Amino acid sequence: MRNLLLATCLFSLSVPAMASCDDLKAQIDAKLQAKGVKSYTLDIVPVAQAAAAPVAASGAAAATPAKETAGKVVGTCEGDTKQIIYKRN
């Protein structure tokens, strides 16, 4: 009985960490619109691609990937494997 209770508690705590990227993006989008923010984009990128942006911005790699991922990380999803990047237009 204790094992079942423990497993249930652990599962309920892990569900938000595995949040769907689309759901989280929709929540962030709703909050930005409620604050009156206009002209922005929210992109979902893999963590490896987002982490490569500072290297690319320093000139060590091609500038194109840095331009695609330059922005502020406003959320992570799918078990911290993807990030949601906010960019002003």
Rank of each mutant, 00 (worst) to 15 (best):
S20F: 07
S20M: 06
S20E: 08
S20R: 09
C21E: 04
C21I: 03
C21H: 02
D22P: 00
D22I: 08
D22T: 13
D23L: 12
D23M: 07
L24D: 00
L24W: 02
L24M: 12
L24E: 10
K25C: 04
K25E: 07
A26Y: 10
A26D: 11
A26G: 07
A26P: 08
A26E: 09
Q27A: 07
Q27F: 02
I28H: 01
I28P: 02
I28Q: 03
D29P: 03
D29W: 05
D29S: 09
D29C: 05
D29M: 06
D29L: 06
D29A: 10
A30L: 08
A30E: 14
A30R: 10
K31Y: 05
K31G: 08
L32M: 06
L32F: 06
L32D: 03
L32H: 04
L32C: 01
L32R: 01
Q33R: 14
A34W: 00
A34C: 02
A34F: 01
K35R: 13
K35P: 05
G36C: 03
G36F: 02
V37S: 04
V37C: 02
K38V: 12
K38G: 00
K38D: 02
S39T: 07
S39L: 07
Y40D: 04
Y40V: 04
Y40K: 05
Y40Q: 04
Y40S: 03
T41F: 10
T41G: 14
T41R: 15
T41S: 15
T41Q: 15
L42W: 08
L42V: 07
L42F: 07
L42R: 10
D43S: 14
D43C: 00
I44C: 11
V45P: 00
V45L: 15
V45C: 04
P46G: 12
P46K: 13
P46Q: 12
V47W: 08
V47L: 13
V47D: 06
V47G: 01
A48C: 10
A48K: 15
A48E: 15
Q49T: 15
Q49G: 11
Q49V: 15
Q49P: 08
A50F: 11
A50Y: 11
A50H: 09
A50M: 11
A50W: 11
A51M: 11
